[in-house]
């Protein structure tokens, strides 16, 4: 059985990617199961979907624990534990990353046993939540990597999944997908069907008997304040608001009042400061700032700039 997981951000078409690959497998005569993981399908937030495909009936269900292929539409998610990209990866897993960086850079970064392949990011965009065809590129590359899906089946699958949105959109996606499919030809068949867990030789599940605990502890109550701040929703951000303090007129805190996420606070000098750990990048502050002192910058560019600055500083230490 093939077990494939897609990771990306809400808005990058992960559910469509899983459906296209599922339908393509199905076109090739496979039994298929595909599903998105629901729960936090917010724009920009990490999301994943998965596909199982087999020549025989599929009885396994639920989230794929040990994937044969993990396809990542947005490389900024790879190293974030909250995105769960690296979960269950083993020596048999192939990682496919939609990235500008080379496999060597990623191998160095991740120090992983998995095979790493790169599908080059086609067209760069300002807002990565709008990254065109990010999911489709991953689906097409995955289709080629498994080696059992033909060009025609891939194109037909895309037409089936996107046809309802009009032929023009389907055509554009097919063009992109086939281009990616061809790019990956050297790796055709690189991903093979995974094996089943043996009943003769398996790791015991390590069950325990749950202890009885008192109701104060055993009820779903939170006896602490504002613990949600531990959740770094800054991860969702694809566009970063940046304040140009030379233009900020220290107004009565327009940006901070309109920020829905309590992510802009005003310091003692009366200047607003953005909490990038939590700013989701909605850009209401950019829209509302009276002197237009807040600018929206693509998050990945802002991060690249920070990394460069950090690298430049390090030797001084």
């Amino acid at each position: 059985m093939y077990r494939i997981r897609f990771h990306g951000r809400g808005g990058q078409g992960m559910k469509t990617a899983s459906r296209v690959l599922g339908t393509a497998f199905f076109q090739q005569g496979f039994q298929v199961q595909d599903a998105p993981r629901y729960g936090a399908e917010r724009r920009g937030a990490p999301i994943f979907a998965y596909v199982r495909a087999s020549r025989t009936a599929i009885n396994e269900r639920g989230v794929i624990r040990h994937p044969d292929l993990v396809a990542i539409a947005d490389d900024s998610l790879v190293s974030s534990p909250a995105a769960g990209v690296l979960q269950g990866l083993g020596p048999g897993t192939t990682m496919l990353i939609n990235s500008h960086d080379t496999p060597e850079v990623w191998r160095h970064r991740l120090n992983l046993d998995a095979t790493i392949l790169i599908v080059p990011v086609g067209e760069e965009v300002t807002d990565r939540a709008d990254l065109p065809f990010a999911g489709m590129v991953c689906a097409a590359a995955a289709a080629r990597l498994v080696g059992v899906i033909g060009r025609e089946a891939l194109a037909a699958a895309i037409r089936e999944e996107l046809g309802a949105h009009g032929n023009a959109l389907a055509d554009r996606n097919i063009e992109t997908a086939l281009h990616t499919y061809d790019l990956m030809q050297d790796h055709a068949g690189a991903v093979t069907e995974g094996t089943e867990i043996s009943a003769e030789n398996y790791a015991s599940p390590q069950w325990i008997d749950l202890p009885l605990e008192n109701a104060g502890r055993a009820a779903p109550s939170i006896h602490a304040a504002a613990t949600s701040t531990l959740l770094k929703t800054g991860l969702w951000r694809t566009m970063r608001p940046e304040i140009d303090y030379t233009h900020c007129n220290r107004c009565w805190w327009v940006c901070s009042t309109f920020c829905p996420d309590s992510a802009i606070r005003v310091n003692e000098a009366g200047l607003p400061e953005i909490d990038y750990d939590h700013c989701k990048g909605c850009l209401i502050c950019v829209a509302k700032c009276p002197p237009h002192a807040i600018e929206a910058i693509p998050e990945h560019l802002a991060q690249a700039r920070e990394e460069k600055a950090h690298a430049a500083k390090t030797p001084d230490r």
Binding site: G22, F26, V32, Q33, D34, A35, G62
Partner: peptide, 9 residues
């Protein structure tokens, strides 16, 4: 989830 949101033939 296991059936409601999962596609099968």
């Amino acid at each position: 989830f296991y059936l409601s949101f999962t596609r099968e033939p």
